[in-house]
Simulated scan of single mutants.
Amino acid sequence: MAIGLAIALSSMAGLVAASNFLVQYPINDWLTWGALTYPLAFLVNDLTNRAYGPAKARQVVYVGFALAVVLSIYLATPRIAMASGCAFLVAQLLDTYIFDKLRNTVWWKAPLLGSVVASFVDTLLFFTLAFAGAGLPLVTLIAGDFAVKVVLALLFLIPFRAMMPLTRPASMPSA
């Protein structure tokens, strides 16, 4: 169990820090490179939640949050680090909650709905806090980022389904 949680934690912190670095580099007028890496954090959260339950998933979120903010201050800017930390914490905890509430439905509902709803909140919070007043096309960036996150949430159902046998949930109360 400890090895799986260590992998989840290091993956979470690494993905968020890398995404905060990459969000500084636009692909075009409506998308940054960070939009392609950050959605993997939802996959990590959902697999952790499935395998270990919401309490352990929240622990991974909290520790991943702290590590990612510290790394991001050096890899990006303090404003991006703080905006990301705020958006990450709210969105990942929301994803954890939604996933847990839907865990006993059809296999794809919990990861898809949790990721899509939390991605929407994450995108709005992050871009507003990180780039408001910076002269960037915020509405365009928010729309582009969210669209990519929805597509990736759909695509990440494939690895989620493939990893389901490896993340058999222990019996646990909902928390």
Rank of each mutant, 00 (worst) to 15 (best):
I158C: 01
A132R: 12
L71T: 00
A41N: 11
D29M: 07
P78T: 11
Y25C: 01
M1A: 10
F146L: 14
V90M: 10
F156T: 02
V117H: 09
A8W: 07
R79N: 12
A51V: 00
L136N: 03
V121C: 03
D145I: 00
A51K: 15
D145N: 15
A130M: 03
F160I: 01
N28G: 01
R168N: 12
F126R: 09
F21A: 13
G133K: 10
V44S: 05
A130Q: 04
Q59I: 03
V60K: 02
V70R: 00
D145P: 04
V63M: 15
A55L: 10
N104L: 13
V106H: 06
T128A: 11
M1D: 10
A2Y: 05
A66Q: 02
F65Q: 14
W107Y: 15
C86S: 14
G53S: 13
T96R: 05
V70Y: 05
K149C: 09
G135V: 06
C86P: 00
R79D: 10
L166W: 02
V106L: 04
G34H: 01
L43T: 06
A134C: 00
T128S: 15
A2C: 02
A41S: 15
L36F: 14
A35L: 01
T105E: 14
W30I: 10
S174C: 04
I27F: 03
A13Y: 05
A57H: 09
L93D: 13
Y62F: 15
P165I: 01
L141D: 00
W30Q: 06
N49K: 02
L47V: 10
S119N: 12
A87M: 10
D46G: 05
L157G: 05
F42T: 04
L5R: 06
V44N: 05
S19E: 08
A162R: 06
I7K: 02
P165L: 10
I73C: 14
V117A: 14
A118F: 03
R58H: 00
I158R: 00
D122W: 09
P54L: 00
L152V: 13
V61K: 04
L125P: 12
A91V: 09
F156M: 15
G114T: 03
F120T: 08
L9C: 08
T128F: 10
Y62I: 13
G85S: 13
V151G: 07
Y74C: 03
F160A: 01
A35K: 02
A76V: 07
F131P: 06
G135Q: 02
F120I: 05
N20S: 06
L40W: 05
A170T: 14
P39Y: 05
V151I: 15
S174Q: 12
Y74K: 08
R103N: 08
P165R: 00
V61N: 07
T77F: 13
G133C: 10
D122N: 15
P111H: 09
V70T: 12
L9N: 01
A18T: 13
V70N: 07
A147C: 01
F88C: 09
V16P: 03
